[in-house]
Amino acid sequence: MKDTTFPKIGFVRLSQILGPTGPIPVSRSLFLQKVRDKEWPQPVRISARVTCWRAQDILDLVDRLPGEITSRSMTDSAPRPCLADGSCPSGSPPNRYRLVSKIERGEV
């Protein structure tokens, strides 16, 4: 089984930041657009073909984002839909697609 804990120090690759196990549940293209727009942390070039982000920068970003995005656990559990009023029954994580739409509209 893959290790799903997010490091507190060091460097992380994009695959550790996004996706079902990362702390930021948005698409790759949206994440990179926010980076290009300088709204989210800038990457560090480790070599010509390796790009990373500082783990602390990503954790700071997670703290800045609204609780609805960061309430997703960093486990392998699949997201379950929330109610129309935005509440999530029995502590289930929010619906990823609704969160992405909020980010795209600039509400986050």
Rank of each mutant, 00 (worst) to 15 (best):
F6H: 06
P66S: 10
L59Q: 13
L18A: 02
T5N: 12
V12A: 07
S29Y: 14
L61T: 03
V12E: 03
S29P: 03
E39Q: 13
Q56P: 04
T21Q: 07
R36S: 11
K8M: 09
W40C: 00
S47K: 09
P66I: 11
T70G: 15
D60K: 13
C52A: 15
D63R: 13
I58N: 00
I69T: 06
G22C: 06
K34S: 01
I17M: 00
P41V: 01
L32T: 08
V62E: 04
Q42H: 05
I58L: 06
R49Q: 13
T51I: 15
V62M: 09
I46N: 04
P25H: 08
R54I: 12
L65M: 14
K8T: 14
A55I: 07
Q42D: 13
C52T: 09
I17F: 01
S47V: 05
S47Y: 05
S47I: 06
D63M: 13
S15C: 11
R54A: 07
P43L: 09
G22R: 00
K8E: 15
E39H: 11
R36K: 14
W53A: 00
A55G: 07
D60E: 14
P23A: 08
A55K: 06
D60P: 04
K8H: 15
I69Q: 05
P7W: 09
L59V: 07
P41E: 03
P25E: 08
G10N: 10
V50C: 14
D37F: 04
V44A: 10
P20T: 11
T21N: 14
R64H: 12
L14H: 02
L59C: 05
P20Q: 13
V26P: 02
P41Y: 00
T21V: 09
V35H: 01
K38S: 15
T21M: 06
T4M: 08
D63H: 14
I46H: 14
P7M: 09
A48Q: 12
G22N: 00
S27G: 15
D57Q: 03
R28N: 12
E39R: 14
F11G: 08
D60N: 15
D57A: 01
V44E: 10
S47R: 14
R28G: 09
L30R: 07
W53T: 01
L61R: 03
S27T: 15
P20V: 11
V50F: 08
R54C: 04
S47W: 05
Q16H: 10
R45I: 04
E39D: 11
L59H: 06
Q33F: 00
R13Q: 12
S15F: 04
F11R: 06
Q33G: 03
V44C: 10
F6K: 07
P66F: 09
W53D: 04
L14A: 02
P7G: 03
P20D: 10
P41G: 07
V12M: 05
E39T: 08
P7Q: 06
R45Y: 11
I46E: 12
P41H: 08
I69C: 04
W40T: 00
L32C: 08
T21H: 09
W40I: 01
R13E: 12
A48N: 11
R36L: 10
V12L: 06
P41M: 04
S29N: 14
I46S: 09
C52Y: 05
V26D: 00
I17Y: 02
D37W: 06
A48Y: 07
P25G: 09
R54T: 09
W53G: 01
V62A: 13
P23F: 02
S15N: 14
Q33A: 11
